[in-house]
Design a protein around this nucleic acid. Structure first.
Lengths: 373, 373
DNA sequence: GCTCAATAATTTCCTTCGTCAAGTATTGAT
DNA sequence: ATCAATACTTGACGAAGGAAATTATTGAGC
């Protein structure tokens, strides 16, 4: 985050991260929370204030019995730096401009007529130009792509929807936009957003489940995102919950996705997705049963997550959840049945996230990279 | 590990850990592997040699084109310090004496006639006395207990088999034995052993599955053991793999344990476990199918682990695996069918571990605590 | 208003840890 | 014997954070 230095002192990163994710905090509070001395916090905060990332709020917090000098909380100056986040799907680019506090300031969609890498990069360049108001304060771009992505190198190993294989996306996007780029898998990016700026704040472990065409999951364990050794992690969609269930395109049987994915629901209901939703809402017993089975399967998959890694909190979201009124009770039922012992106490938030949230996730990853730099 | 200091320098811990887990290493190699300067390694190693934990081996390693000073690898002196590990089961104590290199030097079983805490502690005292030869070089004891254990405080929150609830085991055992005690869940202890001294060495992520009466799983992600926020983690046994499967005592349906646990096999085969094994080995089709279904269920559960956290390596083990010839192919079949994409590449070792291994796991945890101290 | 207790923030000094760069040690090849 | 190559050690230095004293800012009691 310092203009010159390659990497700032750990205390500086820790202070900035804490203020960013947990809101205004006084130096004493920060010291206690981070296990540092007050002196260390003072020293770490000074350059952050000088560089304009933090500011001192008016003394408001009162502590103790009443007496004592009031604390002056440190807050971020959200407009000090902006970040572009773009989710790349097969048929459009969804872009947002976020401030340092990860608030969305601007949001633009741009259709894609082709999956060709060069074409996408050109369109990306236009999108970024349209989003950025102040180039001097916007230096970073985060990209979110579905599939197997190596965040460290910015390489897209394989993205089935885009038909991309071994595309050095970071390098290419840096050339195309002139920004410092981070690339991450879309679900992981969304998980990061929720971990730093959403319901997962402060949780040592945390899971996010997305429901839609595919069913995915991002995991945070011991405060760190789980990436998976073989490029696979969070594939909740291909957990088998019914040995006698339908065959899945992955070769498995009774996968969550083969029961609860959008395509599965369409083929099982024999209707388009929207018609199925309407039929179920109108009380059609057969179609309702399809949604019920889907919700149960998802709940069962979520219970597997809870049983295995025991996250402190689970958020269920995704496009498919537009119809979440049809899913929710069944998801909870499946979860509660299959969660073992205390794992059933794990709070489950079921709520749809706006579609820009994916792009915001991408921006969040670039904020993280910025803070850590 | 220093007699006086509360906590040694991080570099010292890192050096000792690396030599302990990866065998003799020269200072240059250590420097490269740990991201330290050679000077730092020299400085960290000196006190460790002086205290007798490390020793310099004769120069043997030759590197490069031939010329150059030969490296003198650092190796641990395994007999510098001994550790007692005890696994507490409902009907016996299994104790081992390990050296610093986690080699078992001595192993004793001691039957338990009662589950009363005081009684168990008295027996533990006798066991420890029988195991220890040299009190001056044996200062630590690790305990492994099944159930919900808080390693940080040494509190056994709930152990179903022992009928213990909120037993401050560390405190009590320290009083009873005069040793510094660590308490850990049995599966996690075994996982730790395998991570530091077994097949999981060097892996950033790693999973161990135990098959027996219960079916459990220990996970290491990002180099750290997963503990679970609500005291639950690694409960692979209660992942649901068959919505129409048998009801499980946990309230779920089609849990891995309800299909593949020892009790499940006994009741499904209608024979004692040993008889069932013999029948299956003799070619009894019906009983073989029971084992096949059990293996498939386990494989399916393991695939869920691979899909979710993507460990670099998975080891399958446990008492029940005495009959692993009957399980192995089916475990692999279930795993390969249900593992998604590259997750199927995750190497799977299926092998029984000797029963003392559990006690060795307990000792390993105390070695870890010693090294980190 | 003055003083005191309580709490927050800063300053100064100091320790610790690890790096850098130069020097020493030990080998094989010529 | 000399040199190149590699391993290890040494000592000066610097960065980072801690301890404790100091300063700052408030409310309460008088």
């Amino acid at each position: 985050m310092l203009p010159e230095a390659e990497s700032a002192a750990p205390a500086m990163t820790a202070v900035l991260t804490a203020v960013l994710t947990e809101g205004p905090l006084s130096r004493v509070t920060l010291a206690r929370r981070l296990g540092l001395s007050q002196a260390a916090v003072t020293k770490a905060a000074r350059p952050l204030i000088e560089l304009g990332y933090l500011q001192e709020l008016a003394a408001t917090e009162r502590s103790g019995p009443g007496a004592g000098r009031p604390a002056s909380p440190l807050a971020i100056r959200a407009d000090r730096e902006f970040f572009v986040g773009v989710k790349i799907t097969a048929d459009e680019l969804i872009g947002v401009l976020c401030d340092l506090g990860a608030q969305v300031r601007k949001s633009i969609h741009r259709p894609l007529l082709d999956k060709d890498v060069d074409y996408v990069l050109t369109e990306l360049g236009h999108l970024v130009d349209d989003l950025i108001d102040d180039r001097s304060r916007t230096r970073r771009l985060g990209l979110a792509v579905s599939g197997d992505v190596d965040r460290a190198t910015g390489l897209v190993r394989y993205s089935p929807f885009l038909h991309w294989r071994d595309v050095p996306l970071r390098e290419l996007a840096e050339k195309a936009t002139g920004l410092t780029v981070t690339v991450e898998n879309d679900v992981k990016a969304l998980t990061t957003a929720e971990h730093w700026f959403g319901e997962g704040v402060g949780a040592e472990s945390f899971a996010l489940v997305t429901v839609g065409t595919g069913i995915g999951c991002g995991l945070v364990v011991n405060g760190r995102l789980v990436s998976g050794s073989h490029g696979v992690a969070g594939e909740i969609g291909h957990i088998g919950v019914d040995v006698n269930g339908p065959a899945c395109h992955c070769g498995g049987r009774g996968c969550v996705e083969a029961i609860a994915g959008t395509d599965a629901i369409v083929s099982r209901a024999g209707l388009s997705f929207d018609d199925a939703v309407n039929a179920a809402r109108a009380g059609d017993v057969r179609v309702s049963a399809v949604f019920a089975a889907a919700g149960e399967a998802i709940g069962c998959g979520i219970a597997a997550v809870a049983n295995l890694v025991g996250p402190a909190h689970i958020v269920v979201s995704g496009e498919g959840l537009a119809a979440y009124d049809l899913f929710e009770t069944h998801i909870r039922a499946g979860f509660e049945r299959q969660a073992f012992g205390a794992a059933a106490q794990c709070p489950l938030s079921v709520r749809p996230l706006p579609f820009e949230e994916w792009a915001r996730g991408a921006a969040t990853v670039s904020i993280q990279a910025f803070v850590a730099s």
